[in-house]
Design a protein around this nucleic acid. Structure first.
Lengths: 194, 194, 194, 194
DNA sequence: CATGAATGAGTATTCATTCAT
DNA sequence: CATGAATGAATACTCATTCAT
C-alpha cells in the first residue's frame, strides 16, 4: 500500500534506461538510425512508446545518450590503468584486446560507423572525437612508435589508426568472410615483432 | 525552331538524367540519404519534383541508379586496359591514381561509405561487391602480392584493401587534417619499394 | 504519534484540496488551461500526479471545482449582508470594493476571462452566469439606477456591467499601464455624484 | 498537357490560403485555438492535412498569419482616408461603423478576445497592440476628447476604449440577449450629443 | 515533356489517466 | 493515503508519390 522507496524507483529507472539504450543501440545498428522508429524500440523492449519519453525527451536525446554511453564504453577499452606508455607486450595486449572487444561488440561498432557517416551527428562526433580519441589513444600510439624508432611516428600513427578503422569496418560489415584472427596476428607481427 | 530530332530528345533526356543523378549524389553525400528529400533534389537541380518521377520511378530506384553509376565509375578507376597483372610501376600508378580519384570525388566516396552502412542498401552492396571488387580488383592485387613474394598474399590483400578503406574513410570524413599526400607516399614506399 | 482523528484527516483532506485548487488556478491563469498539465500542477503543489486523482476524478472535474469555488468567491464580493438596495454611499463602497478585489485577485480574474472565452466551458459559464450575475448583482445595480432616476435603468445596467468588464479586462491584461485608480475615481464621479 | 501558368498557380495558392485562413479562424473562434486540430481545419475546408503544411509551416505560423490578417482587417475598420481628426459627425459614423462591423464579424472578435487571453499569444498581441491600436485609434479618440473639451481626455480615452471592449465582449459572447442596438444609441448619445 | 498542388500513410511527441507498490 | 512508472489515444508534422493541367 505504501509507495516504493526512493531506492526502488531509482533502480527501476536505471534498469529501464539501460533497457531502452541497449534496445535502441541494437536496432540502430541493425536498421540504421532514421529507419528505426520509436515504436519499434518500444515494441522490442516490451514497453510502450510513451515510456521512452519518460526517460528521454526525444529521439535526438536518446541518440546522444547512446553516443555518450558508447564513448564511455570505448574509453574503457584502452589504457585502463597504466601511465599511457605502451611496452611491446602491452601493445600486443592492446591489439588483442581491441580485436576481442570488436568481436564482442559488433552492434556497437556498426553503430559507430553509422554515426561517423550520419551528417546530422557529425558535430557530436567531432566533439567526442577530439576529446577522447585524439587525446588518449592517439598520444599513446604515437609515443609507442616514437620509442620504437619508427621512421615518422606521427604519420605512422595516422596510418595505424586508419588501418585499424578499415579492418574494423571490413569485419563489422562482413564478419563471415573477413579473416579477423589471422589479421590480428599479421598486425601483431608487423607492429610488435619487427 | 524546328522540332527537335529524336537524337536531340535523347540527348536532353540523358543530360537531365545525369543532372538528377549528380545532384542527388551530392545531396545524399552531404545530408545523408534519408535526410535528403526529392523536393531538395529537384530544387537544387532546378527542375520540378514531378519531373524526377519522369526519369525514375521512385526514390528507391533513383538510389539504385546512383549505385549502378557509382559502380561503373569505380570500375573505371582501375585497370582500364591491361591484362590484370600489375608491375611495380603500375602498382605505384594505381595507388597514385586511386588517391587522385579519391581527392576529386569526396562526395562519391562519402556516399559509398554511407551506403555500406545503410542496412537497407546492404544487399545491393553485397551484390556489387562480389561482382566487382572481389573479381577484378581483388584478384589483381592478390596476384601482385603473390608475384612479389609477399608471405601470405591472400591475407595481405585483405589487409591492403581494408587499410585503403580505412584511409579513404579517414580522409573523406576529415579531409583537412588527414595527411593524405604523405600517406600515399608511405603506402607506395611500403608496397612498391620493399 | 497517536493515529489521527477523523477530524484531523478531514482537515488534511480539505487543506490538500485547497492547495490543489489554488495551484491549479494560478497555473491556469498564467499559462492557459489546456497548456497547463496535471504534472505541472502536482509539481508546483509539491505532491504527486496520482494524488490529484485522489481528490478529483479528472482534469475536467478539477476545472469545474475551480469554477464553483470561483463563483462562490465572486459571490462573496458583493452585497455581503444588506438587503440588496444600494444607497449612494454603498455604491461608492461597492465600486471601491470591486476594484480592491480586482487588484488583489488578478489571477482569479484572468482565469474568469479565460473561461468566458473557452468554448468548452461555455455552458458551465452560462449556468452560473444566469444564476449569479443575473440575479443578485444585476438586480441590485438595476435598482440603484432606477431609484437614482437614470433614464433607462435596465440599459444603464447593461452598460455599467459591460463597462466594468471592459475595465477589468484591460487592467488584468495590462496592469502596468492601465490607470486603474484614476479610472475608479472617474466611475465613482460619474455614477455616484452626478 | 502543358503545366499551368505562373498566374494560375498564384491564383490557386492565394485562394487556398484564404480558404485555410478563413476556415481556421472560424474553428478557432468556435472551439478555441488549442481545441482545434489541423485535421478539423482540413476536413472543414475539404482538403487534406498535408496541404495545410504546403501553405503554412506550422499551426503556430497559421495562427500568426491569422493574426496578421486580423490586424489588417481591424485596421481597415477605422480611419480609412481622413486625417485622423474626428468631427462629431465622424464620431457618430465611427461608432456606428464599429458596431456594424462587430455584428458582421462575431467570429473575428471572438478570436481576438481568445487571443488576448491566450498567454502563448500574448507577445504577438502586445506587438500589434502598440503598433496599431495605440497609435492610430488611440490618438484619434484622444484628440476627439481633447477638442471636445472633455475634462481628462487621456483618461476618457482609456475609459472609452475599455468600455467598448466590454460591450464588444458582452455582445460577442451573449449576442441574443445583449441589447447592442440600444447600447449603440446610448453611446452616441453620451459621447456625441452632450 | 514539365509543373507544383494535393494526398495520405507514417512518425515523433504529448499528456490525461491508471495502477502496482 | 501517496508515489511515480506505465499506458495509449490523440495530434502535429513530413515526405514520397500522384495527377490535373
Amino acid at each position: 500500500m505504501s509507495p516504493r522507496t526512493k531506492e526502488q524507483y531509482a533502480k527501476i529507472r536505471e534498469d529501464r534506461r539501460e533497457l531502452i539504450l541497449g534496445t535502441a543501440l541494437e536496432l540502430f545498428a541493425k536498421q540504421g538510425i532514421s529507419h528505426t522508429t520509436i515504436q519499434q524500440i518500444a515494441k522490442k523492449a516490451g514497453i510502450s512508446k510513451g515510456l521512452i519519453y519518460n526517460y528521454f525527451t526525444s529521439k535526438e536525446e536518446l541518440l546522444e545518450e547512446i553516443i555518450k554511453a558508447s564513448v564511455k564504453h570505448l574509453y574503457a577499452f584502452f589504457d585502463p590503468d597504466h601511465d599511457g606508455i605502451l611496452t611491446t607486450e602491452e601493445m600486443v595486449y592492446f591489439i588483442e584486446q581491441q580485436v576481442r572487444m570488436l568481436m564482442l561488440n559488433i552492434d556497437f561498432w556498426k553503430f559507430l560507423f553509422m554515426l561517423l557517416v550520419q551528417p546530422s551527428a557529425q558535430e557530436l562526433i567531432r566533439r567526442f572525437q577530439s576529446e577522447i580519441l585524439s587525446s588518449g589513444m592517439w598520444r599513446m600510439i604515437a609515443t609507442y612508435f616514437r620509442t620504437h624508432n619508427f621512421k615518422d611516428p606521427e604519420l605512422e600513427t595516422w596510418f595505424f589508426l586508419a588501418m585499424l578503422d578499415g579492418i574494423y569496418m571490413n569485419y563489422v560489415f562482413n564478419p563471415e568472410k573477413f579473416p579477423i584472427d589471422r589479421m590480428k596476428e599479421l598486425i601483431i607481427q608487423r607492429y610488435c615483432k619487427p
